[in-house]
Amino acid sequence: MINPFAFVGRVVLDFFQTIGSVAVFAFMGLSHAVRPPFFWRNYMRHFIEIGYLSLPVVALTTLFSGMVLALQSYSGFSRFSAEGAVAMVVALSITRELAPVLAGLMVAGRIGAAMAAEIGTMRVTEQIDALEALSTNPYSYLVAPRLIAGILMMPFLVAVGDIIGVMGGYIVGVYKLGFNSAAYLQQTWDVLETEDVVSGLVKAAVYGFIVTLMGCYHGYRSTGGAQGVGRATTQAVVSSAILILIANYFVTELFFTK
């Protein structure tokens, strides 16, 4: 018969063990990002992979989110004659929330999964052992470039997503809902404050760190052949998505709680 106290204790211990393990992994990865050797080709590869090759998916996501937001807020606000707030809602929602969160989730699916699969495959095919045999620290070679690329490239992606998302709202607002073009842009410009954009970019950096950390961590620790790599990939995406949503609350509170 299962002892309920032992069961709860085991779950709690496993939870803290995982947190500790992730924290140590993150520390090792980041510490190797600030000390030589630096594998610049790997850094460039991941900068391009995250910052450039993820652009289409982030652009499409934010474009249609901005468009939908304009439509939804117009139909909602028209109930109490507040249609004029559409530009404001689109600009604030996109820059503060939608662009960073949607970009984070998209990159988690695209990059986090790929990282977990690649590193997991390297683990089960002894390529990580081979790196060590070749006097190369896997944290320097594999983890640090990915973490830094995630932290630096996600804000770039979100900045582009901000512009495209706002333009999505503009397209619907001006060409479908009949807003005046100049007035829409002016209202957007007037309502946006530096803090709105900066908070979104900080969130992006945090999400970039989360996605790459989860991808690397789960891949690095994968065991058991193809099945283990598949499991690592799933865990990387699921844990990234959950942590992004949790971190979203805390970063928002950090910026906007007076």
Partner: peptide
Amino acid sequence: ARSAMNQRVGMLFQHAALLDS
């Protein structure tokens, strides 16, 4: 110390373990 020692050792892995990237 490990890195320096591994420079003195070469290893052929069971499945070669070549870096596929």
